[in-house]
Design a binder for these strands. Structure first.
Lengths: 238, 238, 238, 238
DNA sequence: AATGAATGAGATTTCATTCAT
DNA sequence: TATGAATGAAATCTCATTCAT
């Protein structure tokens, strides 16, 4: 049984064991460096951190964008399980949402990665599994938001898309690195939650932003068909 | 008696008319491009946008940092008058603070510019007038925050420094440009205000952040006189 | 057992064959051009002369200084063997000294290269092998001078350091290139030797200049061990 | 009575008093800076040192070469009187030659300046007075050398041209600046004299080099007629 | 398949020289 | 006429990407 997770080449053929290992090393190094220094770190440094040559990196990922896509996809996968666990616990939607976004820095990275650039986003469409993971993540987020709103603990004029935007704006490591200040993430995360909590009556301009809007907004120019072609391996975990 | 605003060379001598005009064109172009694409836009593009040669740009500003400083300084000056007007109106501190930060996009740019890099910040110290403007801006912010807290409309576990950080994190045009979404600034500004409004009881980690902390944190190596006038951050805890 | 001469990267690892060849082409081109036009020839020209792109040059030598160091180091190595041969012959120290400096233009280039700039010199300290070669060269020079003085054929109020300075002043190709004259090196080399010959009684201001002085004068900031082996300048005053 | 000394424009018209003053300030500043840092000092620095704008400098001297020519010419004139004095004293030709070259740093600068570049040299041909001063200087040098040789104190296989070459090679301030060593000029000047002193029997390759050779060698490509055209003001000091 | 060398297109900065004020 | 501002052609160096080993 072939799992597709990060283990297939462009044409769907199985990668050699060492090749797959390199692929993973590269993605891990890239995630680290990107999280630390933003999406513009020199390719050579990523290669060095991964312990491979640039050539290898480029053989695996023909350009920077496709590496970003891979990192994003990988991250979604990493997050997928975590997501389910968080939800299972059942401490109330609002609390779950908070701890979900507070503790899982991978989640935050995931939410940011999809929106690094149009091309990153649009390429994501061609990796069916990553897209599926992403959609699961977004669906979970949607559900948590909806439940929290039903509970009455979250204001109803915001949507899951707003949460994604907030995360995307807030947690930019490049920006943070540039701020010559040691500001604690937590403090501003808390403020963000307070902003989202119900009891804040200021009416917001515009309707709640759903994640569907985010996704749709990016899927206009390219092909509209949901999963057009090049789905390397349709079979995935049950 | 003329003030020197924008019209003096490094040594304080008056610039020739055409030179001053170019200087202003450059700063305007730089502000525009920086606001649009962040502080790393090619110098050549800035020059082109200003309608001058690179050489001219470099004659006026020997390196990128000094251009950033100039843009920051200029922006502070542009903001200074506006600041006073806003305050004069007197519709209550909270309302004033909101409209102050909501309407003046220059204010937001100013608050961000000071913290682009340590060197930008530190060079700013040597431009007395820009520093004065900055300090006036920060002092105003401090006052508004304090008053709003006294009014009971703003939570007391945040400080003016927190506002600056939030602005700095939120309104990064480079980041925005990268987001392939047309997100309305207003919406998130509102959320930010709601986060800052009183009635949000979640205790924040850490003490309120004053602007003095921001300024002091960056002023270690150089001159010791922290903030010549415009006392930012008197005590304001409840 | 291979020596690493010219064939190792910065970290001592073996270079690939083609890289080593390029490295050598670059050094050769640089030596040529530097000898012809001084240490300021455009990097791009050096690259062109070597038949490579600038990028290659910069990959090998991250900046101009490090290229100069490499050329110096290489030159020392080239000279090292020659030095021993000259000395072996044994026609009397004075004669040896003369032919040593007369025939080997590489020797002269070497003696000049170490003193192009403080940074060149100081970086040289970190290339152990080049330093060893340099020290061997200087030690040989010291010995020849001392022996010639013992023989009675060389004035005793000069030292090997003086010889280096004279070479350094005389054989500046940039200077020569600028002189719109075809002056024969030999002629002035001969005059220099006559100046150094004994029987010239004019007392010189200052003590004989040893090469140790040259070396020490430049070795203040960095490591304290002055000259690992190849003892330049034992006492040699009459 | 119009004296031509530095006081005429390109077309021979008398310069306004302030213009002449500027011309002199520029030349003085240029001499200083050139002597200190070689013939490549930025034009703007020369202008600044002279207390004028670059525009003024360029109005006076259309390019760098012509400034060098002017500095050379001026220097010759400054030296001319000195030359006569030195000779008048009459302490023996050898002694005179030594003190002549030892004490008058202007003399040394003059001897170097003529040979900075072909164009410098060739342009000199168009400034009749400077050429005359130069020729006087060279003639004096020739005479001193000849007399010293007649006295028996100077070797006869060298000529005044050799002396010029030696000076030209030795006293390059740019070179000296680069040497990270404080070497005393005197010491090497003394050595040079010892080289030139009789009693040094090593036969030199080639014939004595006369200054005529220097001059002739540079006058081939251009026009051969001694003072072709454009002698701005033939009348000069009686 | 892996490596890392080579490439060349920018980006920054300097400075000789021209030109508007 | 004096000024110094404007220009643009180098020169240095970096890095994404391609290609030989």
């Amino acid at each position: 049984m072939r799992t597709s997770a990060g283990g297939t080449g462009r044409d769907g053929t199985r990668l050699r064991a060492d090749a797959r290992r390199n692929r993973e090393l590269i993605i891990a190094a890239a995630r680290e460096l990107i999280a630390e220094r933003g999406p513009d770190v020199p390719m050579e440094e990523i290669a060095r951190a991964a312990g491979v040559g640039v050539g290898t990196l480029y053989r695996r990922f023909p350009d920077r964008e496709s590496l970003l896509v891979a990192v994003a996809g990988d991250n979604y996968r990493r997050v997928a399980a975590e997501v389910r666990n968080f939800v299972r616990e059942g401490h109330g939607a609002w609390h779950t949402l908070r701890s979900f976004l507070s503790h899982a820095s991978d989640v935050r990275l995931s939410l940011r990665l999809a929106f690094f650039s149009e091309r990153t986003f649009s390429m994501l469409k061609h990796d069916a599994e990553a897209r599926r993971s992403r959609d699961e993540l977004l669906a979970t987020l949607e559900r948590l938001v909806r439940d929290a709103q039903t509970e009455g603990s979250m204001r109803t004029d915001v949507g899951a898309g707003d949460v994604v935007v907030l995360i995307g704006l807030f947690f930019d490591p490049a920006r943070r690195a540039r701020l010559p200040l040691a500001v604690p993430d937590d403090r501003y995360l808390m403020l963000m939650f307070d902003a989202l909590h119900s009891g804040n009556a200021t009416p917001l301009p515009g309707p709640p932003l759903g994640t569907d809007v985010l996704v749709r907004q990016l899927a206009t120019d390219d092909d509209a068909s949901p999963t057009p072609q090049g789905e390397p391996s349709p079979d995935h975990r049950p």
